[in-house]
Design a binder for these strands. Structure first.
Lengths: 219, 219
DNA sequence: TAGATTGTTAATCGATTAACAATC
DNA sequence: TAGATTGTTAATCGATTAACAATC
């Protein structure tokens, strides 16, 4: 129906919009303009309007966007209007942190199964979820209709875990391990690699003197 | 000296190169071509060559790049040839996970101070570091010459923590909280917002039937 | 020498921004 | 009506990719 290809950059901004709109809604603010959004989110208002316009006409000329309506629409676009089940592999510090994060309440993404290769961890529980051994992964993914896998294992094991997720029929992966994963086409991989973010931050940490040359500029 | 402006996208790829080069070095592989790198990292070889060429001529025509030499060079570019001190605020699950992560050994970024607003946590220790109360932040940042701050507090407190970091003289922030932070120009902010990554992943999770229309395509 | 691979220029592609008619 | 703000087209800007001479 819609032959327009939506760019990755656009999709990546939608959750940012959603997040702030939720804040506005909680403050009982009913209407917001692209200008307001742009200031708050450090984005160009034209870009925001264009992003939203890819999906429909959600605003009213001369008025702006109805906050709750826009929330509803973005949630539909992101397919967050129904619960999406998620599995996580790797119950180290990071994995446990994510399990406790519950995004379920607002965002409909729910970690419903947790796995660890370390058999001794099987049966222990994290945030009301029993840790399962890896052998049960495929079956659980199928049974619970899990669409997305989160990988929080050491770099060396990440590809192996990814492979197991993919052959279990998962269609999206959120990878926290500092490696580039390979997967069959059709499986979407997002990386949440803070080590890369931190190291690239170092590049911009000039000495104070240099700083004057380079000036302020971008963010 | 160098008036060429290096784009953000380029800088963001350098840690990815570095990471894989370190792997190669550990396997005693001496030489690598942009082709090899491209295949392994899912990037265009021309892009890799171009990225590196911004900073100098590191390769040899007909041969490729010397792995250890390239590692050394990228580390210099990213200013990882000397230790960079880092402070972290927020000792929840995520904060503790990061403290235990030690990137120090390979990457010269070292968390040397940890803070929490919750006074009752002061004095407890995480990975050999004593948690300090927020009042000590400014002084510690100065004393330990801390350049980068990591924010792992709830969304509602993140801007406040950022402000305190900035007025303490920090020059870079890695923000894990799901908000857009504001800071004076000259302070670099990187976001490590996995909630946004996860929500945008949902967009691509079509039903199996739709999947056929949209095909395989990008990653 | 023949084969391989860089560094770099030019071509392409895509994303952001400006501008403005439409209209609430 | 006057002011505000959208949706959208056109202009700009920037990033990626292709191509190839240089050369190891």
């Amino acid at each position: 129906m819609k032959p327009i290809k939506i760019s990755e950059a656009v999709v990546r901004r939608l959750p940012i919009y959603l997040r702030y709109l939720n804040e506005l809604s909680l403050s009982n603010i009913q209407t917001v303009s692209s200008q307001d959004l742009g200031e708050k989110l450090d984005l160009n208002p034209a870009q925001i309007r264009k992003d939203l316009a890819y999906f429909g006409e959600f605003g009213r000329k001369g008025v702006g966007y109805n906050v709750d309506y826009l929330i509803e629409k973005i949630r539909q676009i992101l397919k967050l209007d129904k619960t999406m089940n998620v599995a996580l592999v790797g119950t180290g510090n990071l994995g446990r942190a994510l399990c406790n994060y519950n995004m379920y309440i607002k965002d409909n993404m729910k970690i419903v199964a947790v796995f660890d290769a370390d058999m001794s961890k099987a049966g222990t529980s994290i945030n009301h979820l029993q840790v399962q051994p890896m052998q049960e992964l495929a079956e659980t993914v199928r049974k619970l209709d899990i669409a997305v896998g989160i990988i929080t294992v050491p770099a060396g094991e990440a590809q192996n875990v990814a492979d197991r997720f993919v052959s279990a029929g998962i269609r999206g992966l959120l990878n926290f391990a500092p490696v580039v994963l390979k997967a069959a086409p059709g499986v979407r991989i997002h990386n949440a690699d803070f080590t890369a973010e931190l190291l690239s931050l170092a590049y911009y940490m000039d000495d104070q003197n240099e700083e004057q040359e380079e000036g302020d500029a971008e963010q």
